[in-house]
Design a binder for these strands. Structure first.
Lengths: 211, 211
DNA sequence: GACTGATGTAGAACGTGTTACAAGTCTAGA
DNA sequence: TCTAGACTTGTAACACGTTCTACATCAGTC
């Protein structure tokens, strides 16, 4: 488990399928298989069960190929998280969020997501721990996740899929809510909070911030 | 790097010096040497440089002894963090925090601590990453850290070393501030925020929460 | 159709966290 | 003092993330 690499990993040439979209059809397909295998293993056994050899085998690629696509286990898991979150954002764009007040709508989307995560505790454990352990070299993927979360909350705040006008203050509030949500998630993953505590702590934060 | 152990590690008998206070004088001394070595190595090279063999060597104990005192690298680092934070709490108990408003006082203590951490980036990186990666088995140490932080903020809020009366709402606010502070610290450690961003994000959170 | 460079494969090898084990040492109580 | 048991030591072994090497395959170019 390496952590802070000051140099950005210089292999011989650019990596082939770092982005979800680039590369040939076969490469996108390999990337998909790898992330699917990652999710499957994580869902079954959590962070420890996502072993690089196991992922490679289940995705039917060589270990070296796996590392060519994702330069570390952390990149792999955070990329998986980013893919899942992106799906969520796409879903949330479809129709307006139910709820009469910003508070209700924000709680709606966050609780929905929280419960979805809690249904797969092992998977959540793996993804959250990876996210928290990520170092500088994972900035891109981390940012993707943060943007997804921000977008979803902003939409809920305004109650509409479009959310062009976010004031400075609103942005600050959204960031704080994200922080609280992530902290609560960690606490839940590590057994320091139960399901109810998570929802309550977010509810309190949203109430205090939106008054 | 193991993570979720459902069973609480059953060695042959109780561990000798899990608590800072228990054990013989020689054991407390060993514990101190181990934590000193940990801090020294972390300060110099960050998380990766805290290698269990290196810690054992520098603390002049056998590897097995190190593991008897601290059952994992994460326990070790979080315990080191807990020790540092506890020192801070003791210092903060001595005299009242400067500042005319709760906002000013809270910013004073948090900024002071933030700057202290930023002076030793490698050390902070090691401690924060360990804290974030900690799993269920580290609950005790984590809780110790959380309590320290809460105590310090509560004192600052009231402006006095005693802080018996913390309302439900105040406790919630303190928890949110802690969450924001930790998130900001992670962002700083992983290079996603600079020094100024950290202070600003906390300032905004405190302002929004205390209005 | 053959050449070439990028990509993929299989598997060995290395580093570090963690565990296991055999033997020495220290301490409390008889 | 002697002994039982806990504690410590030194060292080997194991697991898994990561890197490296030698070879195969494939796509595009002449």
């Amino acid at each position: 488990m390496t952590s802070v690499s000051t140099e950005p990993r210089d292999t011989n040439g650019p990596t082939p399928a770092t982005a979800p979209t680039g590369g040939s059809a076969a490469q996108r397909e390999r990337r998909r298989r790898i992330l699917d295998a990652t999710i499957a293993l994580a869902a079954e056994g959590g962070f420890d069960a996502v072993q690089m050899r196991a992922v490679a085998e289940q995705a039917e690629v060589a270990l070296g190929t796996l590392y060519r696509y994702f330069p570390s286990k952390i990149h792999l898991l955070v990329s998986a998280l980013a893919r899942e979150f992106t799906k969520d954002v796409e879903r949330s764009a479809v129709r307006a969020t139910p709820g009469d007040t910003a508070h209700e709508r924000i709680m709606y989307v966050l609780n929905r997501r929280t419960r979805a995560l809690q249904k797969q505790p092992k998977l959540t454990e793996a993804l959250v721990r990876a996210f928290m352990f990520a170092d500088q070299s994972v900035t891109g993927e981390i940012h993707e996740v943060g943007t997804s979360l921000t977008t979803v909350i902003a939409r809920a705040m305004h109650g509409t899929p479009d959310h062009g006008e976010v004031t400075e203050e609103e942005a600050a509030i959204i960031r704080i809510i994200s922080d609280v949500w992530l902290s609560a998630l960690i606490s839940w993953v590590t057994g320091r909070m139960d399901t109810e505590d998570v929802e309550k702590s977010i509810d309190v934060a949203v109430r205090l911030l939106l008054r």
